[in-house]
Design a binder for these strands. Structure first.
Lengths: 142, 142
DNA sequence: TTTACACCCTCAAGCAACTAGAGGTTCAAC
DNA sequence: GTTGAACCTCTAGTTGCTTGAGGGTGTAAA
């Protein structure tokens, strides 16, 4: 039986995050000691490891809930999980494309900065006038 | 004189976002009509365009505030703006590296999915066991 | 002039996915 | 029995907005 702190250590999660997952229904309500402290078994350890791993791969908590449901029903067809993974891959590739455009633009800004006064600063100048951009970029909040 | 709606249209911003920027002090309090509606001039248009452009390049609102301060003081040395831009570039490059690792892993997952039942699904299997990953990835919330 | 209607206003709450802190209790070792 | 780390709940904060309720304004046509 694991305390919440040990579970946290084993999965690289923060204690508060585990409690948060419980609160939103992603993790089950575990057993408790007489004093009211949470105690976890191997099933919960596996589930949390799954969740953390999927998070590391960029899946949203909502997508993870779907994946966990699929995982709980081994008789269901596989293509749903595949669809979720493909959707995720597509998102990652879109983000990559946008970030690459941003890198190009930022590199150009930084490269051209002469190190004088802000009056002649390329960084500020580029920000002032979008038309100077060589690449299209419309990324917000990625 | 522009209404908030026209300013929004010209800059590709939502009306509520402009009011939000005003609330947090990123945009100045504009003049008002007798009836209390906001009216904007060219200075505000330029400032908002600057903000939006910097957001598209991934700068945080906090960084943008710094950049705007620098922009308001053309006599100050330029290297501060350069530092902010370099910091941003570094962040973008870190994100790119992690996303590339994720893409590799996701591609592998999707590629190996046989399309049978979830019991044999590679996608779920990989998520269950991190040790199957070929690449290190520790991206969360990027 | 009145009426229509798009646009504007404020305030409050909600979103993702946590994180941090206050103030108090329990567990396990010594 | 006492210490002290680890646990508990609850609330609020983070970033960068978005959504909604409930109402007021501005302008143009009838």
């Amino acid at each position: 039986m694991l305390t919440i702190g040990n579970l946290a250590r084993k999965t690289g999660t923060k204690v508060q995050t585990i409690r948060y997952y419980e609160q939103i229904g992603l993790m089950p309500e575990p057993g408790r000691t007489d004093g009211g402290q949470r105690r976890y078994g191997n099933a919960e350890l596996d589930r949390l490891a799954f969740i953390r791993h999927a998070r590391q791969l960029g899946f949203s908590l909502e997508a993870i809930l779907e994946l966990l449901d699929l995982s709980d029903h081994p008789d269901r067809p596989c293509h749903e999980a595949d669809t979720i993974a493909r959707r995720q891959l597509k998102q990652v590739e879109q983000r990559l494309a946008r970030l690459e455009a941003l890198r190009t633009e930022l590199k150009r800004m930084v490269h051209e900065c002469s190190g004088g006064q802000t009056a002649d600063c390329r960084v500020l100048e580029v920000l002032r006038d979008h038309s100077e951009c060589l690449t299209e970029h419309d990324e917000i909040g990625a």
